[in-house]
Amino acid sequence: MQDRPTASELLASIADLLEQELLAATQGPLQHAARVAGSLCRILEREARLGAAQEAREIEVLAGVLGEPAGGRDALTLSETLVHRLDTGGDAALERRAWPALVEILRGKLAIAKPGHDAWDFTAELE
């Protein structure tokens, strides 16, 4: 175990530095880069807190779609397998299972990458 501050706490501090002091002290493309770097630190801060649980759930959900045991599997291999099976085509039942599963996985990913993005679900545009 590392000592406090935790990774998440340190990343929040780096984000504060980038978004406040450094942003104010720069201009033009460098200012934009500082803003982007600050936003990336916020993402990594959330990833440090939520990432492990998100990935564990992703593995469970993907394994469920594929009808395989989740134990000992990783998200990358399961994603590759799912892509391969979707690519082979023609499995309507698999596609119908995959859609809500991927929506759930993306809610978890967006809670880290862009909280709130999933609040808009395009209902008004599908009328």
Binding site: A33, V36, I43, L102, D121, F122
Partner: peptide, 27 residues
């Protein structure tokens, strides 16, 4: 470029959008 790197973490937004736009096709 840090800006180009950051784009990788925006892909999930587009995955979300595209799945929502195709909701009628699957759900």
């Amino acid at each position: 470029s840090i800006v180009m790197a950051a784009s990788g973490r925006r892909v999930a937004e587009l995955e979300w959008d595209v799945l929502m736009l195709l909701r009628r096709s699957f759900a």
